[in-house]
Write a protein that binds this DNA or RNA. Sequence first.
DNA 1: ATACTTACTAAGATAATGTTAGTGAGTTTC
DNA 2: GAAACTCACTAACATTATCTTAGTAAGTAT
Lengths: 406, 406
Amino acid sequence: MAKMIGPSSENTRSAILDLIRSGGVVSRVDLVETSGLTAASITRIVKTLMSDGLVIETGFGDSTGGKRPTLLELNAGSRYAVGISLDDARLTYVVTDLAGVLVGRLVSAGIGDTYPPTVIERIQAELDVLLTQLDIERSDVVGVGVAGAGRRDVSGAVLRASLSAPDWENFAVKQALEAASGFTVFLENDSACAALGEFWVGRIPATQDFATLYMATGIGCGLIIRGSVYGGASSNAGEIGHMIIDVNGPDCWCGSRGCLEMLAAPLAVVQRALADTTLATSLGLSGQPSELRMDFARIARAAAQGDPGCVALIEQSANFLAKALISLANLVDLDRLYLAGPGFADAGSIYYRIIRDQLDSLAFMRSVHPVHVELSEVGLESAALGAAAVALQSELTPHHKVASGV
Amino acid sequence: MAKMIGPSSENTRSAILDLIRSGGVVSRVDLVETSGLTAASITRIVKTLMSDGLVIETGFGDSTGGKRPTLLELNAGSRYAVGISLDDARLTYVVTDLAGVLVGRLVSAGIGDTYPPTVIERIQAELDVLLTQLDIERSDVVGVGVAGAGRRDVSGAVLRASLSAPDWENFAVKQALEAASGFTVFLENDSACAALGEFWVGRIPATQDFATLYMATGIGCGLIIRGSVYGGASSNAGEIGHMIIDVNGPDCWCGSRGCLEMLAAPLAVVQRALADTTLATSLGLSGQPSELRMDFARIARAAAQGDPGCVALIEQSANFLAKALISLANLVDLDRLYLAGPGFADAGSIYYRIIRDQLDSLAFMRSVHPVHVELSEVGLESAALGAAAVALQSELTPHHKVASGV
DNA sequence: ATACTTACTAAGATAATGTTAGTGAGTTTC
DNA sequence: GAAACTCACTAACATTATCTTAGTAAGTAT
């Protein structure tokens, strides 16, 4: 958690940097107003940020009757961050600049059932290729963020991934990759990454809280509170996939029943589609566990093109999601929600419509304020981009300690 | 939210005060260790706290091979706070010292359908009586906290209370009571109060997050994050009563269906009891809306004494609550939960047992850490005691801005 | 008694912020 | 088109919070 005690210089510095990041293009006077500090202090702090190359002056604003304000921006090209999404189906690498903007990418085969150390070796090699391609110095990389599904223990190991191979249980991804690559590595779950990515590139100020629903094979949710990922007791907050939305619902592998994931996740949608043999054959569904994501994508694409049966299936899934999100909104008095992840790639607009409508009409606080819903634009790479944002944040605004296991 | 920028003195001062509060009896050396500051700084800060009368030296600890440590404590008797629980059934006033310990109380008739300004007048008069009785100077009272059910708008008015009379809609309780009494008034919802009370008197350090489930007529939940009430977008966080736990459940007045409150709240239990006419007559249930709490108490008492029908009813309610709490625990990765409020007064142990067992066996993170459940000891007065804690906190540790609507 | 430990404090060094009083560069007004 | 004004920004100093260093006070161990 954020240190509350001691000299405030570092806090202030990163808070100002955060205001510049979230503001995009700001003058010193803007910073005076938003920060509450005096102009003299802003002058001094900006000077240190510029001398570190993190911020640059990029021109002048319009005069309002006196001297024109000098405009400041993040010096986006001064440093880079890498984000990796560890996923069953594929590995997605992204390289971003300081502003979190994509500058390069690479996609390779998923983890499958490969022995973890072998995967780490491959990652290290692919990372090297990517950075060389982009002509980026290793010393300009602030760190590598890794987004993966599953619970994490306090040491930063993936404790129980939904990754297929049991080898990954208790395998210390962070330590292994740090040793192999030489970079500082941050491990965070994919939902939290997606949420932080939204925060970083979306220019959301650190004062505004929001949630990101992330759907891939499973369903998770990242909570950004006061500008940083809310981790809860053991950095595992956001398990909305096991919210119970039907006390009489089907048994879930987690031991409970009627969990959101059982009713709304891609697997549930595909299983319902398979039950309708006509639909299943016309879509060419395989029904193989390894093809789950492909099968779901086929249904989602057909729904997006108006196939009534598929629309009904997606709407059913969206309705379940909406119920869980209403509960979430009521619980934390949410006013901003993003939808992200590959699960929304093909039929995102259907999900968006239903979720937005239901929150508008059923959220408990609707008479006080609306819940603003957005379909994230970062699409398939949201987790990887967010992982890069985790690395950026830990470097640039270290007071927002991202719980990353030592 | 907590100010992150500017001089750190006030933050530090209140952080140290918070360490003393949560520590109970501590030495300066303890503070050095827990705060991370140097001994010299602790000396200076403790000096200012003592000169303000907030902290006193109370003796010496055991030597561990050198000079004995001087023990410090909150100077509990130096100031007082008032907490009022505004409730349908009754008004509960409590006076506490700085440590949040009860030093006096008064219970009077509930709000019923009285015209709000009349209630304010009565409160003002009863407050005067109570303080005079206890021989407490008005200048030693740091403020008055008011706990009430219902949604609040940003200005601190009760926007939509579940209080019976529609007059209370949009009535600005805070402003009216401040004008009438001359005290600083803080308005917070009853669940949040109960949670903060737990925090303040329970010596929970500000670094540990937890939730308090509060059941009176409705069901709410207070979230304490980093030592302060988490309010969300409009200070209305904690609406667990409208978490959807059965997508096929009965319609709720909130517009949604299958809400926790519809299935588990006292009203639901009483209605189920009334459906069984034998049970209803043997318990002497009235079935009148105004007698709801009494009827529920009859069932709860019978259950506590082992009446099988009543036990079944309470267990059913507890099971629904447990499902919602599992979802909550999964969502925010909870590791501490308190049960508070009049709803647990009579059959608390049944609720406790079922909720604890279900969290132990079904919470998603059970393999990483348990969820520690406790039946709050403050009982019926938890909301009022918590309201007093709201006043205490805003006075003593102002960096934990309690969202109280200006 | 002597040496050592521990708890705490005093005094000065360092550093972050605020205060006050500018300067530079634009607009407005007559 | 110069004088007056505004606004953005900065320099120099004052204030203050922290840490550093070097104590002192009060205990234990030998």
